[in-house]
Nucleic acid binder design. Structure first.
Lengths: 214, 214
DNA sequence: GTCTATAGAACGATAGAC
DNA sequence: GTCTATCGTTCTATAGAC
């Protein structure tokens, strides 16, 4: 038997991701966690405090692992610019592995995160900036060094596209399997990492072309 | 003054996208639309009927325009495989233009759509499949013909990545501007189309490489 | 077709016993 | 730290006057 706080976090993660934050009541959570109605307010202060704890539990270790992989590359290569694919892999691999790890509530958590990323609510955005800001800046810096000839404006746009490709893949588990008629296996974490890194790297490396007219 | 139904649709689109479906009450909608509390139930039957109408109003014309552009390419080129960039542009351009058109509630609608795409609710997924299924299959068929050497499993994965890049860009209006320190202009629809098509086309065309080991 | 009024249910949060 | 009980609020939906 897990402790009360963990039981609440597990239930909340699952329900927030599958029903959405607003559609999930504390009563739903407490019913699944087998705890009392007052337990959430006792342990987390409020429903807002609960979502903050749900996010921190996964994102803090995730970004530690990402930066560890990035540091490891840098240590190996000294002051040279890192190879693009290795930077992307340090960014992507920990997230994909987490999203496919059933022990970590994987796909549940990533879908929740995907929801929150398009949430205009300023309070949510503040939480996400606090959790991802520094890691994001570290990776953008590494990408800039790796692609010195790419103008900054193009780099930012491409990072944005890459974020979308990654986020959508992390969130979506069943649609691709359905659309592809079962050809694609959403549980093949290493295959996803390889394909996603290759796709993004190709887009990142593409020479900048002049705007063409229709 | 617009009619009651349109006023409700406009208000609902804005509120569903900014607060989420569940967090938006009919009272919120009716307050903004300046109509009565019972008006939604009268015109749309229920809150579910309202979201269906909100989606149909934008998606049906959007997909008609996408298929029109695709048909136009095919008519011009006969039985040849269409150029990859033209297919992608037929898919992407109408959506980007819609998302940047303030008259069409653009960014509001796309954010709502982005939310719904990661909604596991089967009812929502059924609505989306009905609205997007046929158009999606037409474009996948065209992409297959355009990339005859790409194995089907790789094509589906890449379509998935492309969908994510596009969806994230359509939803997100402010984060990129913030992260880039104002370098990227989220209102430059034609620039976005050009960059997004180039990024996705590069990823689509990338030769398939063997899985490498870490 | 548009309103008022309200039914009936669920919500977040808290007080206070143990 | 965990419980019961409940307060005050808000919700969707509908009944029925006009």
């Amino acid at each position: 038997m897990v402790d009360t706080k963990t039981a609440i976090l597990d239930a909340a993660e699952h329900l927030f991701s599958s029903k959405g934050f607003d559609a999930t009541s504390l009563r739903d959570i407490n019913a699944i966690a087998q705890v009392n109605l007052a337990a959430v307010n006792y342990h987390f202060g409020s429903k807002d405090g609960l979502i903050q704890s749900v996010l921190e539990r996964r994102i803090v270790p995730l970004n530690i692992e990402r930066l560890r992989l990035l540091d490891q590359c840098e240590a190996r290569l000294g002051n040279d610019a890192l190879p693009l694919n290795e930077i992307l892999e340090a960014l992507i691999a920990p997230a994909v592995r987490l999203s496919r790890d059933p022990k970590a509530g994987g796909e549940d958590f990533m879908r929740l995160l995907g929801r929150l990323f398009i949430e205009p609510n300023p309070k949510v955005q503040t939480i996400l900036e606090a959790l991802f800001g520094e890691t994001g800046r570290r990776f953008i810096k590494a990408l800039k060094q790796s692609l010195p000839n790419l103008p900054e404006v193009e780099l930012f746009w491409r990072v944005n596209f890459a974020t979308g490709a990654m986020a959508h893949t992390l969130c979506d588990t069943s649609r691709l399997e359905f659309i592809s008629g079962g050809v694609c296996d959403p549980n093949d974490a290493e295959g996803i990492i390889h394909r996603l890194v290759a796709f993004i790297a190709a887009g990142m490396r593409e020479p900048v072309s002049a705007t063409h007219t229709l």
